[in-house]
Nucleic acid binder design. Structure first.
Length: 430
RNA sequence: GUGGCUGUAGCUCAAUUGGUUAGAGCGCCGGACUGUGGCUCCGGAGGUUGCGGGUUCAAUUCCCGUCAGUCACCCCA
């Protein structure tokens, strides 16, 4: 039986780790651009942190066990409850809005599929303590900018935008009973593909909910709104400060930022998690061959539920698994140009002492250096330097030069020159 | 958790209706090659054909189970 990693858990070979770091780097870049500070929490949490909020059925998707102190603990499946607890503890003393991001590794016991594993890293960005629709727009813009930094355009990705309050209002207008709203939203959540089968499925679900017949058609009509004109017509008179105005203001802000081409109204976006209260959105690849790249929205009541402090929030989670697939598919995986700056080559074994001295001198100067541990002929050493993707080869022990100089060769251009040892670090770094 | 499809070297794949010692390219290691890499040529290592069982004189090939991957469900970060 060969040793293998657990299903759904990844091993990152150097190429994989490089791509992961590329994604992490984009995450950090955008977080910095938006003035977000990094935080982190415990990977292992009390089980109740999740069961209290999400109910017992999520137990099947949690990695949980009893620790040696008899506590029921779980590997974190999402970051938001931890964030809510941390924010709730200090929110009253912090300047608003709070802009926090984190890049936790999360765990969930589910059947692994492409882009969905039992472990992943997830960028979480949350804007806390601000109810303005500009905060929603800010968060969505950040999620989109991550895509843009990674080289993905509006040709490849889009954000599907909706608003729970708007949907609820439209459903009430259609006559859906208030006590059926929550279940109806769940049914709508399934409708994300505008396919006939999905429609049929949704009709059946609605009938089971007691929302059959004409009412069901009304619900489906609401869930199929894809353009702003239809939405405004369906909403009727817009109340100041109401959900519709809120959603439109968020849209306007995104348009004013120049992100219009990415934005798609989609009233079938509801989000599974129960705690969302306002704007909700998901990022998708345009071909829709992958799962959601990112999902988020406004959750104004969660912090109060967890900590007792009333703080409005909007945020998203963006996993690395789907992004990895999309970047590979879009041929946007960067190639590392050069692994080491200088590869030291010894003319003969007698020069190895000098190689070690020079190598360490260069490393002290911050230059990345490699050299052959065994000294084969020059041809072989050059070959090694080439395979290691070195920028320069430094030949140590050149007979025609004095001891104080070395010859360096630019491996890409083939250009060679003689350099004083004291000037070597500066020359190689340039 | 349910169902479909797929599992051969590190990677991509081949192997006649079931037939002898499971092959190739790339990659890796070494040689040709004693002051200059990428090219070329030669050689080598690397496989319990995912694993287990069954049918058969004979299984990579057919059957069953199982594990893993993948797709669609369930569900969702």
């Amino acid at each position: 039986m060969p040793a293998t990693a657990l299903p759904g858990f990844r091993e990152f070979y150097p190429d994989d780790a490089a791509l992961r770091n590329h994604i992490f780097s984009a995450w950090r870049t955008v977080a910095a651009r938006y003035g977000f500070e990094e935080y982190d929490g415990p990977p292992l949490e009390p089980l109740e942190l999740y069961t209290d909020k999400s109910g017992a059925e999520i137990m099947g998707q949690l990695y949980y066990f009893e620790d040696k102190g008899g506590r029921s603990v779980a590997l974190r499946p999402e970051m938001t409850p931890t964030l809510a607890r941390m924010v709730g503890a200090r929110a009253s003393s912090m300047m608003k809005p709070i802009r926090w991001f984190s890049m936790p590794q999360l765990f969930r016991y589910e059947r692994p599929q492409r882009g969905r594993l039992r472990e992943h890293f997830q960028l979480n960005m949350d804007l806390i303590g601000e109810t303005s629709p500009l905060a929603d727009a800010e968060i969505i813009a950040a999620a989109l900018d991550v895509q843009r930094v990674l080289g993905l355009t509006e040709q490849q990705v889009c954000v599907r935008l909706s608003h729970r309050g708007v949907i609820q209002q439209l459903l009430l207008n259609k006559g859906v009973p208030a006590d059926r709203l929550s279940a109806t939203l769940t049914a709508i959540d399934r409708l994300e593909v505008d396919a006939p089968e999905a429609l049929e499925w949704a009709r059946k679900q609605l009938v089971q909910l007691g929302v059959g017949g004409e009412l069901a058609e009304g619900v489906l009509e609401v869930a199929r709104i894809r353009d702003w004109t239809t939405l405004e017509r369906a909403a009727g008179a817009v109340t100041a400060g109401g959900p519709v105005e809120n959603l439109l203001a968020c849209r306007d802000a995104l348009f004013q930022m120049g992100l219009e081409a990415f934005v798609q109204l989609d009233t079938s976006i509801v989000r599974g998690l129960a705690y969302y209260t306002g704007v909700v959105f998901e990022l998708f690849d345009r071909q829709h061959t992958l799962r959601a790249i990112c999902g988020g929205g406004r959750y104004d009541d969660l912090v109060k539920q967890v900590s007792g402090t009333d703080v409005p929030c909007v945020g998203f989670g963006m996993g690395d698994a789907v992004l990895t697939e999309l970047l590979k598919e879009s041929k946007l995986v960067p190639v590392v140009p050069s692994r080491v700056q200088a590869f030291l080559v010894a003319h003969s074994a007698a020069n190895q002492v000098e190689v070690l001295r020079l190598a360490h001198m260069l490393r002290d100067e911050g230059v990345s250096v490699e050299y052959a541990m065994k000294i084969p002929n020059l041809r072989r050493q050059f070959e090694q330097a080439g395979k290691r993707q070195a920028r320069y080869v430094v030949i140590v022990g050149s007979p025609e030069g004095a001891d104080a100089v070395v010859k360096i060769r630019d491996l890409a251009s083939g250009h060679e020159e003689v350099v004083a040892q004291g000037a070597l670090a500066a020359r190689v770094r340039s």
